[in-house]
C-alpha cells in the first residue's frame, strides 16, 4: 500500500526523496555494526514476508507494514533493512517502482525512526506486558499514520491534480492502521515477555 509505482510522482519529489533516503541510509549503514547484520536481515525478511500475508478486515484484507515494529526493535538499523526489502520487492514482485525507491524508503523508514526515537526508550526501561502492549499499539498507529501522511504529501507535492484523491488514499489506510495497531501491540507484548533483550541492544 505504501509502495508508490513509477510514473506517479514528479521529478523534484523523486530527487528530493532520493537524496533524503541516501542520507538516511548512509547514517543507518554507518551505525550498523557488522555483528548486527544477521538480526537486521531477519527484520528485513519479516517485513518482506509480512507483505505477502493477507489479514482479513471486513470485506477486504490488508498486508501488515510492520514499520513501527521495525523501529522498536532495530532503531536506526531499520533504514537499511527497509531499503533492502523494498529493493527486493521492486525487483522481484514489481511492488513499488525503481525510480520511486528513495521516496518509498523515506515514507516507510522515517515513521520507523520516529517510533524508535519517541517510543523505543520507553520500552526498554519496563517489562510489564500490559504497558508493552500499549506502546506497541502506539507504534503501529504512528508507523502507519505517518506513512499515510507522507504518501499523501509526496502526491500533493507532485501535482495539484492529485489533491482531490488524497481523501480516498487516506481512507484506504484506515483498515491497515487498525490491524497494524493490534498486530504490533500483540507482537510487542509477546516479545517483551518472551525475549525482552530483543529491544535493547540494537538501539544507539
Amino acid at each position: 500500500m505504501a509502495h508508490i509505482p513509477d510514473g506517479v510522482l514528479s521529478a523534484p519529489v523523486l530527487i528530493g526523496g532520493g537524496l533524503l533516503a541516501a542520507g538516511l541510509v548512509t547514517v543507518g549503514v554507518k551505525r550498523l555494526g557488522e555483528a548486527q547484520i544477521p538480526q537486521t536481515a531477519v527484520l528485513a525478511a519479516v517485513f518482506f514476508v509480512a507483505s505477502l500475508v493477507h489479514i482479513p478486515v471486513g470485506p477486504t484484507s490488508v498486508h501488515p507494514l510492520l514499520n513501527g515494529l521495525m523501529g522498536l526493535v532495530l532503531g536506526w538499523a531499520a533504514v537499511p533493512a527497509i531499503l533492502v526489502a523494498l529493493l527486493l520487492q521492486a525487483a522481484f514482485f514489481g511492488f513499488g517502482g525503481l525510480t520511486t525507491l528513495g521516496v518509498n524508503c523515506c515514507n516507510i523508514a522515517v515513521p520507523a525512526l520516529a517510533v524508535a526515537l519517541l517510543l523505543g526508550p520507553r520500552l526498554r526501561i519496563q517489562q510489564d506486558r500490559r504497558r508493552a502492549f500499549l506502546i506497541g499499539l502506539a507504534a503501529g498507529l504512528l508507523g502507519v499514520g505517518l506513512t499515510a501522511l507522507m504518501v499523501c504529501a509526496a502526491l500533493a507535492l507532485s501535482g495539484p491534480a492529485y489533491v482531490p484523491a488524497l481523501g480516498l488514499v487516506l481512507l484506504s489506510y484506515g483498515p491497515l492502521a487498525l490491524v497494524e495497531a493490534v498486530v504490533t501491540a500483540a507482537a510487542t507484548g509477546l516479545l517483551c515477555q518472551v525475549k525482552p533483550e530483543i529491544f535493547a541492544p540494537a538501539h544507539g
Partner: peptide, 29 residues
C-alpha cells in the same frame, strides 16, 4: 483468519514468535 480482534492479535503473536525463533537462529548462525 477472520476480521476479528482475536484473529489480528493471533497474527501479532505469530509475527512475534517468528521474530523470536529467527533471532535465535540468527544468533546461532
Amino acid at each position: 483468519a477472520s476480521g476479528s480482534r482475536h484473529s489480528w492479535r493471533s497474527f501479532g503473536h505469530l509475527f512475534g514468535m517468528l521474530l523470536v525463533k529467527s533471532f535465535e537462529r540468527a544468533e546461532r548462525v
